[in-house]
Write a protein that binds this DNA or RNA. Structure first.
Lengths: 152, 152
DNA sequence: TTGTTTGCAAACCTTTTGCACGTTA
DNA sequence: TAACGTGCAAAAGGTTTGCAAACAA
């Protein structure tokens, strides 16, 4: 049930999924956007805009931070990327997988580490709530905060 | 089970609870801190530092925004206040009730409205995860995002 | 008196925006 | 060429910090 780390995803599959969706939407291809999409595809878990930007610059790209934010906003609006708030005031993003399978996060309040977990009973409980409430629920996210093994 | 809005709390009880905890900690009493504590006690749901500050100024107080942030930080560190990220990059806070009873949030991504809900099955699922995972879980929060009745 | 707390203003950081210059179709 | 996308620099928030004055114990 509760399996810490459940994401052996094929990076390439999200990458082409995203590329297809962008093509279908009619956006133009550009090196900046391609670089950001590729960087996101390579993530196992969430990363901030600044982190993505830094990694790209380190790898020799000349993308501007504004393009990272703009691409993230575009992808988020298309549902291709999930936004996560770990509580430190910085938005983090990770690829949204087409199958609907997703994970939630364990956040260490001492060192800031983020781990992923998945739990079926949790998803079930959330679906029940969504059905019952006078609100159209499109998405949900869960954060468990505490201390990771190293900080405990 | 899932009851939208389940918080007919007695404001006074949290207020004295917080005052006691502060006294026990040995902090000095000051009008700024008192004003912020009273303002938080009066909230039914979460409010941002700016909102709390604005309300206090409107009511004739001269508290500075820094004191609001400092008090919030103090209370949060003592576990008297819960921090909530609704996804718009602004931290919101609400009183933490001593009994452990708490609620989670429905966030409207179109108008920003926030509603509270409580669900036992959800809490149960989260407890099971906390027991199973290699992480000491101190707190958790859940956000359901979508469209409220008015925006739907 | 002594250490705490305050309000203000400046500093900080993340994110957004205006704009002139490339690039894509 | 015409619309779109880019990098840069400046602006715009929200939040934090330095500091001298005010205050509680």
């Amino acid at each position: 049930m509760a399996t810490p780390h459940t994401h052996t995803h094929d990076h390439g599959s999200w990458n082409t999924h995203a590329a297809d969706a962008l093509a279908r939407k009619g956006t133009r291809r550009s090196s900046a956007r391609d670089a950001v999409v590729t960087a996101i595809a390579a993530q196992d878990c969430c990363a901030s805009a600044q982190e993505i930007h830094a990694r790209l610059r380190t790898d020799g790209s000349t993308v501007g931070i504004a393009s990272v934010y703009r691409t993230l906003e575009l992808l988020h609006g298309m549902g291709l990327v999930t936004r996560i708030d770990t509580g430190d005031g910085v938005a983090r993003f990770e690829p949204t997988h087409p199958g609907g399978e997703h994970h939630h996060h364990l956040v260490c309040t001492s060192c800031g580490a983020v781990e992923a977990f998945h739990d079926d009973a949790l998803e079930e409980a959330i679906h029940r709530i969504a059905d019952r409430v006078d609100f159209r629920v499109d998405a949900h996210d869960v954060a468990l905060r505490g201390a990771c093994r190293a900080c405990r």
